[in-house]
Design a protein around this nucleic acid. Structure first.
Length: 221
DNA sequence: GGCCAGGACACCA
DNA sequence: TGGTGTCATGGC
């Protein structure tokens, strides 16, 4: 059984439990990009405070950010932590995209390969931020590999070691899914990562033991 | 008071 | 390449 087919099965099982989750929690594509920067190594609760501050001052789009001052941005995003570097990253990314393309939508129209190269070259956009922007802001078929994904795959045994995880993180595309399914798959992985206990792969009282049972019988070997 | 949270980058060996 | 330090707030 291949790695991809394992993920297919996991998706089906998770879908039975969670259904459509309608992620990412943002109103616009620009907001996704801003949130993706703000959430770097930061709990979403703190990010929400920063986003709320930005919204109150109508600074929740790339154009407004690019026209704002560093001090102003820094003040508003303070609750999300790492505010100095995040303010710089938001300014660099917004300014470049707006000045060179006019909008995120116009950048998207250049195609996925172009966007991957372009965004990766921006300071402050690493692999996970890139994945999130491609999938949730640009509607491109990208499997998001973040801390939740690694943690979950390690727990269920789809990945077996930190070493394997590091290799896995470097795999650019592993799935031939459509965009809505990829969005929901990552959302479900986040949800189950938050809900489950820390046992490997699952403890007996785990709320997802039906998945555990199925997983042990059908997927593991 | 310590630990962790939806990372990325610079620096060093 | 791989390991480590740094950036910082807020919740538990």
């Amino acid at each position: 059984m291949t790695f991809d087919s394992n993920i297919l099965l996991i998706e089906r099982l998770l879908y039975d439990e969670f259904g459509d989750l309608n992620w990412w929690p943002a109103n616009t594509s620009d907001e996704v990009v801003i949130g993706a920067i703000l959430t770097q190594n930061t709990s979403w609760g703190n990010v929400e405070k920063a986003i709320s501050n930005l919204r109150e001052e109508n600074l929740l789009d790339l154009k407004s950010i690019s026209e704002s001052s560093r001090e102003n941005i820094l003040r508003l995003i303070r609750p999300s932590g790492f505010y100095n570097q995040k303010a710089d990253r938001l300014l660099v990314i917004s300014t470049k995209i707006i000045s060179e393309f006019g909008s995120l939508d116009k950048l998207s129209k250049r195609g996925m390969e172009f966007c991957i190269k372009y965004l990766s070259d921006l300071k402050g956009v690493g692999k996970e931020t890139l994945d999130s922007i491609l999938l949730y802001a640009m509607d491109m078929p990208r499997f998001v590999v973040d801390k939740y994904t690694i943690r979950y795959f390690l727990r269920i045994g789809l990945l077996n070691s930190e070493r394997e995880s590091r290799k896995f993180e470097k795999i650019p595309e592993i799935l031939d899914y459509n965009v809505p399914r990829l969005k929901n798959l990552h959302a479900m992985i986040v949800e189950i990562s938050k809900k489950n206990c820390k046992s490997k792969p699952f403890c007996e009282s785990c709320i997802m033991r039906n998945i555990c049972k199925y997983y042990k019988e059908r997927i593991l070997p």
